[in-house]
């Protein structure tokens, strides 16, 4: 009886060099997919996440982003306002997001 179990040694293992090297994007994490930078994204997410009808106020925003300078937070808010992602509600310190998802 032949117990010849010849493993098919078909093709030599191709080492595909050149392709599929992950993590080769020289990471500038300043521009995630939607064209906003990191600060802007965080601000937008916080505002989106706020359940209050009048929106999130700037103080809350600041206290939740304490690792960031106030100026950048303010800048991000301004930017998001300009782009139409957020808008001010009861006063200039309360913001809601337009993308209601």
């Amino acid at each position: 009886s032949k117990a010849h179990n010849q493993a098919s040694v078909g093709r030599p293992s191709i080492s595909n060099s050149g392709m599929g090297e992950p993590g080769n994007y020289s990471g500038n994490n300043f521009m995630p997919a939607n064209g906003l930078n990191v600060v802007q994204n965080q601000v937008l997410n916080l505002i989106k996440a706020c359940p209050r009808p009048e929106g999130l106020n700037f103080q809350d925003l600041r206290s939740q982003l304490q690792h960031m300078p106030v100026a950048s937070v303010k800048q991000a808010v301004d930017f998001l306002c300009n782009e139409g992602h957020i808008y001010s509600t009861v006063d200039d310190d309360h913001f809601k997001s337009t993308d209601a998802e």
């Binding site: 782009e83 139409g84 009861v90």
Partner: peptide, 20 residues
């Protein structure tokens, strides 16, 4: 408040203009 509505409308317009 009218103001809120107006701001929201304006914001939506800006967003729409962006996405064209």
């Amino acid at each position: 408040l009218v103001r809120i509505q107006r701001n929201k409308a304006a914001a939506l317009l800006r967003l729409a203009a962006r996405n064209v």
